[in-house]
């Protein structure tokens, strides 16, 4: 038999009833590789206002609590630049990713 043109991601017998998905699979697709620029925070300027966190369409920022800043998860950050643009202290710079 020739190899099928498309490799199936699941066999017929392995599919869940009703073709359902479960939340545990939600972070499987890493969208960080879409990025051409990445946010870099200057913590000296950061006033911990949270705008980067509130306005991120991908929800990649995490509140670092006691350390009083928000950390971007580069596995998922697509590099849209909203965080840098909205930052009232201009504490985030979008830096070119190296290929």
């Amino acid at each position: 038999m020739t190899k099928p043109a498309v490799e199936a991601i699941a066999k017929v017998g392995d599919l869940p009833l009703g073709f359902i998905g479960r939340p545990k699979r939600s972070r499987a697709a890493k969208t960080g590789d879409w990025r051409s620029v990445r946010p870099v925070l200057d913590r000296a300027r950061c006033n911990y206002c949270g705008f980067c966190y509130f306005y991120c369409p991908d929800g990649v920022f995490q509140d670092m609590g006691e350390e009083k800043y928000y950390q971007a998860d580069l596995d998922y950050c697509k590099g849209c630049g909203i965080c840098a643009h909205e930052c009232p202290k201009k504490a985030i710079a979008m830096i070119q990713e190296e290929v």
């Binding site: 972070r27 697709a29 890493k30 306005y55 369409p57 998860d73 590099g79 909203i82």
Partner: peptide, 16 residues
């Protein structure tokens, strides 16, 4: 609760 890893465009205001 809308987990990262979705395929919305960069800067999508609807995803936000």
């Amino acid at each position: 609760v809308l987990a990262p890893g979705h395929g919305a465009c960069q800067g999508c205001g609807e995803a936000l």
